[in-house]
């Protein structure tokens, strides 16, 4: 009785939006399923396509969290560029297009306990730290703030990351070219 009342109060509390929660739940379920498919499918190309679903789901979650610019960047960079790279990688390494029986290691079973251990620790730590923190819905973050931050206090890291990208691009070419 009391628990249901507190639960109802919690739901009715400021900032708890039931529609958002439902949306979050649906997207999260799809993402978890897709992520599991990525790591279990027997077909490399299918794995890449499931990864698109996960990445798209992450972008949707960003929208729910009010981070619109990050969501757009996620779509542009990940789904637009990184996935194309992955598909090229799959194509150039002549992976089997159909099902492949030995996509997993012989010792793949080792992954299950490690992953469960990890999950347990993380979930426990997260609930312990943020168990009752409520995110109030503030609407989308203005992109101006992000650009101001990048060209203001974060200018130096921004330049540094540009150089990292440049170096990675040059490095990738140097590593991958044929001579």
């Amino acid at each position: 009785m009391t628990t249901s009342i507190t639960g109802a109060m919690l739901l009715a509390a400021d900032g708890i939006n039931i529609a958002m929660n439902v949306g979050f739940g649906i997207i999260a379920a799809i993402m978890v399923f897709a992520a599991l498919s990525v790591v279990t499918t027997r077909n490399v190309v299918h794995g890449a396509l499931w990864l698109v679903v996960v990445l798209g789901g992450v972008a949707a979650q960003y929208l729910l969290a009010g981070a619109e610019f990050v969501a757009i960047s996620q779509v542009l960079v990940y789904i637009g560029a990184v996935m194309v790279l992955f598909l090229f990688g799959i194509m150039l390494t002549r992976a089997k297009i159909g099902a492949d029986t030995d996509l997993n290691n012989s010792s793949w079973g080792l992954g299950i306990p490690v992953a469960l251990l990890m999950l347990g620790v993380l979930v426990w730590a997260v609930i312990d730290a943020f168990g009752d923190t409520v995110i109030t819905d503030r609407g989308p973050t203005p992109t101006v703030e992000i650009s101001d931050a990048f060209l203001g206090p974060y200018l130096l890291p921004f330049l540094a990351i540009s150089f990292v990208l440049l170096a990675a691009a040059v490095g990738a070419i140097v590593i991958a070219r044929k001579d």
Partner: peptide, 21 residues
């Protein structure tokens, strides 16, 4: 084998986290 090193790394990290907790 890289995967097993990965397993050790993450497993050890999880165990260390549990110890810290």
């Amino acid at each position: 084998k890289v995967n097993q090193y990965g397993a050790l790394l993450f497993g050890a990290a999880a165990v260390a986290a549990i110890v810290l907790v």
